[in-house]
Design a binder for these strands. Structure first.
Length: 935
RNA sequence: GCUCAGAUGGUGGAACUGGUAGACACGCAGGACUUAAAAUCCUGUGACCUUAAAAGUCGUGCGGGUUCGAUUCCCGCUCUGAGUACCA
């Protein structure tokens, strides 16, 4: 029979499902290998052809690893909490759980058709109570922990309490809030329970605190920094404003240094690591206190100094002014009556500007003098104190020292306001024109560091500042603690209730705290989150539960552990399972998660490791980002009359210049190689049923543009349609054939025929002209073995560097070669089936069983061993080039040594022709590669 | 502005360590089969020049360099895409 892909694919998909072929079990006789895909959010639109790209690659990898004798864990699940289902619920009243369920079923149907080797018995859904029970449990562990800087790890909160009991707050070195109390053990002993809880909350790794949040009114929720892009929400593009709110936060900043260092130990794409480094934003410098000059002022201040952070403490003698952020808490107190008007005016002006304007308006220098002065601690000089919006309240101390000669921004500021510019290094050039940030040369005009180099000066100053108690070397991180609460319904309830305004955890045995039913999915009339609508939403019938739910990234920050032991009801995963599967060996997903999911997951992983629940410091050893598949839209051109009205005439792309036209999107599924199928077009656009078509060469050629893949642009290609027409094996191979996995590219179905033809040709290798299965048990010919072993090697080399497209080409070459050789040899063909099976598993299973093997055993067959002996050649066709230009090829024995090759080449008649009687200056012979003659 | 990735035929792309640029596939052209079409199969297909054939010249974004030899290494530039943005 001819290649009947529909029957074959259905048959084997059913076989795999019924026999649970890909169910992973612990097996200590084999090395483990964990291949993970970033699990999808099940959206209502279903899968388009871009989604499975990464899944196909990881599936090929997983299947290959099984053939190589690994015990492979390859699961799939759904990140099923999220905003779209909730937005849909608000519009329709449909419970998000129902929408989600429907969408998941659609996804599953689509995924099943592609022939993935997922172990579905381990499926997880983050919105299942059985799953989010453990998300809540991890939240509780975070609440019950603090970060001890002495041991450099998270510890149970009881070790902190012990320290407070024993020696008060003095010995505690922790990552905590700024405004913690200093107290003696006796103070701790006399504190009320509420006072103690209030203090402990400042240390917990998840904590409640009033913080400035990104409030998105349109979505009715706060957003994390990585969910805000240029002042608008990433999802939906709604405006986001800064607002102060009581919020749950995660003390991820405690892990800043470990998150940074860990990047050096993992095999991830450099751009992703770089983004995480930028996000963490480590800067090494010093904090310095500038005393406020209160000599002629009589005022009460909450502090008598201004603290600044600088990465160039060596330039401190060049300070000509200090700047505070307009929001800095001391601004009001430090503004003199004379400057009050100017300062208030400036603050008002700053407030009006949106975040976006402030960023767009980098060039305009602005600021206001407060009228106050501070004293430079190293020189004793009196310098002006300004406010300006280029200083951000949220970074460092919200105060900056201005060194115009060394910093361009400071230089512009000083020039604009007529402040002093002092040269501090003899290596600085042209500081009248612009700042020079060099570290070269020796210091001048710099008191006790005059004559020193950069390194000497920095060390000297750090030591001096510390000794004087006015500063010290300091490391600063840009990364802020992550807000961990959303004023939304469709998320994990936070397992907390409030008693006298203080948060307490529910008991562990009371988990999961199940999401309650509510009447509608909107905030309450009083502006509380949707959970405020739930009846009896209180603990012990008296204490109100937390009304926020967890953010989208909560469930995805640990899910790879749940797959290790998905059914466990007494632990998030058993110690045993974690000890066996350990970590993810290969993780494939989109680059858009670089600073969100991938950073939070590393954070939770490190935390779980500190508490001894997991073993590895990093969860994902190897990461691959698959490229984005863009849409490729097709257009028809409608002729427009004088008044600009559309006519009923459509002109082919090549002729449109001769007419006035308007472009209309046309469904890409009725266009083949840019040629419009006119009959189908008339059905697609009934208003054009009677249209006239101006053709070129008898065809209607469509225009092309690359855009986002979306329904409204009629450029969505659904994998189901391709599978229906060509089969899953063709789809799998074609997606890989498109180009390098990591490269973004527009989807183009042109060319899928080539892959389909390849599979037919492959099928035909095993059949005679009448499509009767026919292989022979003869002795394989040398050429056949060579073709086979070439592909055996190629596939294993390619997979190590994630180059799937080149393997597909090589399969085509191998099948072309074996077809030309009329190969019918069982041994050769059987090995070829194994090699191809990770790419095209269905057709290979069918042929495998036709070859007489046990049905379904192909998945665990042994990958053939490459034998280099079959590659050995006696002869090689040497390209002979003259002055670097290839002129001819010469067949020579590979046993010849360089000198013999040279002699053979030079004596050749055709070569003589190029020599024109001259003796060559030089002859380069690379054995088995090339001969180059220099004349 | 900064960081990163990239630029190869009509198209997607290959060339892994500096060694025959354009593998493989699409498209296109011609042919076979067919009453015809589809499907299938065969042949050709970087550009230029010339041709009966052969030969020749140019050619991997642009300009230089290193080398016997550069798509590959180095320097400078242009363009495209992604990320990031007053971070002190």
């Amino acid at each position: 029979m001819d290649y009947q892909f529909r029957e074959i694919e259905q048959k084997w998909q059913k076989h795999w499902a019924q026999n649970q072929t890909f169910k992973a079990e612990k097996d200590t006789t084999k090395p483990k290998f964990y291949v993970l895909d970033m699990f999808p959010y099940p959206s209502g639109a279903g899968l388009h052809v871009g989604h499975p790209l990464g899944y196909i690659a990881s599936d090929i990898f997983a299947r290959y690893k099984r053939l190589k004798g690994f015990n492979v864990l390859h699961p799939m699940g759904y990140d099923s909490f999220g905003l779209p289902a909730e937005q849909y619920a608000i519009q329709t009243g449909q419970h998000p759980a129902l929408t989600t369920e429907t969408n998941i079923n659609t996804y599953r149907t689509q995924l099943d058709k592609i022939g993935f080797s997922f172990d579905w018995s381990r499926e997880v859904r983050t919105s299942d109570a059985g799953y989010y029970k453990w998300t809540q449990w991890i939240f509780m562990q975070l609440f019950n922990s603090w970060y001890n800087l002495e041991t450099d790890r998270a510890e149970d909160i009881t070790t902190l309490i012990e320290k407070f009991n024993a020696s008060g707050s003095a010995d505690v070195r922790a990552v905590c809030d700024e405004e913690v109390k200093s107290f003696m053990p006796s103070d701790w002993a006399t504190m009320t329970d509420e006072e103690r809880q209030e203090e402990l909350l400042k240390y917990r790794l998840t904590y409640l605190r009033e913080s400035t949040v990104n409030w998105c009114a349109a979505l009715g929720t706060v957003l994390a920094n990585d969910e805000v892009k240029d002042g608008y929400s990433e999802r939906g593009g709604h405006p986001v404003e800064q607002k102060k709110m009581m919020q749950w936060s995660m003390r991820i900043s405690a892990y800043a240094e470990r998150l940074l260092q860990g990047l050096n130990t993992i095999d991830w794409p450099e751009p992703v690591k770089e983004m995480q480094r930028n996000w963490i934003g480590k800067s090494v410098g010093a904090s310095v206190r500038f005393k406020i000059d209160n000599a002629d002022a009589d005022r009460v201040l909450s502090a008598d100094y201004i603290e600044v952070f600088t990465t160039r403490v060596d330039t401190i003698f060049g300070v000509s002014y200090l700047v505070l952020a307009p929001e800095h808490e001391l601004v009001t107190a430090l503004t003199t009556p004379a400057q009050l008007e100017a300062v208030n005016g400036y603050i008002a002006q700053t407030k009006k500007k949106s975040e976006l304007d402030r960023m767009a308006d980098i060039k305009t220098v602005s600021g206001a003098f407060t009228g106050s002065y501070v004293i430079n601690p190293v020189s004793g000089e009196r310098v002006q104190l300004w406010i300006a919006d280029y200083v951000l309240a949220g970074y460092g101390t919200g105060a900056v020292m201005g060194v115009p000669s060394g910093d361009q921004r400071d230089w512009l500021f000083a020039t604009h306001f007529g402040l002093q510019i002092v040269q501090i290094l003899d290596g600085q050039k042209d500081i009248e024109v612009q700042a020079d940030a060099t570290k070269e040369g020796l210091y001048i005009n710099s008191g006790f560091i005059n004559g020193m180099t950069y390194a000497e000066a920095t060390a000297t100053l750090n030591a001096w500042l510390e000794e004087q108690g006015v500063g010290k070397a300091k490391v600063n991180y840009r990364m802020r603690d992550a807000i961990f609460g959303r004023q939304r319904y469709w998320g994990e309830p936070i397992p907390v209730y409030f008693k006298d305004g203080l948060p307490y955890l529910v008991k562990e045995e009371e988990l999961p705290l199940v999401l309650p039913e509510i009447d509608k999915y909107l905030p309450t009339e009083t502006g509380e989150p949707p959970l405020g609508r739930a009846e009896d939403w209180s603990y012990d019938d008296q204490y109100e539960y937390e009304l926020s739910t967890m953010p989208g990234w909560a469930g995805s920050s640990w899910y790879w552990y749940r797959y290790m032991d998905a059914q466990n009801s007494s632990d998030f995963a058993s110690k045993d399972a974690i000890a066996y599967w350990k970590d993810v060996d290969l993780y494939i997903g989109g680059a858009e998660h670089a600073t969100g999911h991938l950073l939070y997951s590393r954070f939770w992983n490190k935390f779980l490791k500190d508490l001894g629940y997991v073993q590895e410091e990093e969860p994902f050893k190897k990461l691959i980002n698959q490229g984005m598949i863009q849409g490729r839209s097709n257009f028809v051109y409608r002729v427009v009359d004088e008044e600009g009205r559309g006519t009923n005439t459509l002109v082919s792309q090549g002729l449109k210049k001769e007419y006035k036209t308007s472009a209309l999107h046309v469904d890409v599924n009725i266009v083949e190689n840019e040629v419009l199928n006119i009959e189908k077009f008339k059905l697609f656009r009934p208003e054009f049923a009677a249209a006239e078509f101006i053709l070129e060469n008898g065809k209607y050629i469509c225009g092309v543009e690359v855009e986002k893949m979306s329904k409204s642009k009629f450029n969505v290609v659904n994998p189901d349609v391709l599978i229906e027409n060509y089969g899953a094996d063709t789809l799998r191979m074609y997606e890989m054939f498109l180009g390098p996995l990591e490269q973004s590219k527009p989807w183009n179905t042109n060319g899928i025929e080539g892959v389909f033809k390849f599979l037919r040709k492959f099928w035909r290798l095993f059949h005679n002209d009448q499509w009767v299965f026919n292989v022979e048990d003869d002795i394989p010919a040398k050429a056949e073995l060579k073709a086979l072993h070439k592909i055996i090697k190629k596939v294993q080399d390619d997979i190590d560097r994630f180059s799937f497209n080149t393997s597909v080409s090589s399969f085509m070459i191998a099948v072309n070669e074996l077809t030309d050789l009329k190969c019918k040899n069982r041994q050769v063909l059987e090995d070829l089936v194994i090699v191809l099976s990770s790419y095209a598993p269905h057709i290979c299973e069918e042929l495998w069983s036709l070859l007489g093997n046990e049905a379904g055993s192909l998945s665990f067959a042994k990958y053939p061993v490459f034998n280099p002996e079959y590659m050995v050649e006696d002869e090689f066709s040497y390209p002979v080039s003259v002055n670097g230009k290839t002129r001819l090829n010469l067949n020579l024995s590979l046993s010849l040594e360089a000198a013999e090759i040279e002699a053979a080449v030079l004596s050749n008649e055709d070569v003589q022709k190029y020599l024109e009687g001259k003796a060559p200056k030089k002859v380069i012979v690379v054995k088995g590669r090339i001969v180059n003659i220099v004349i």
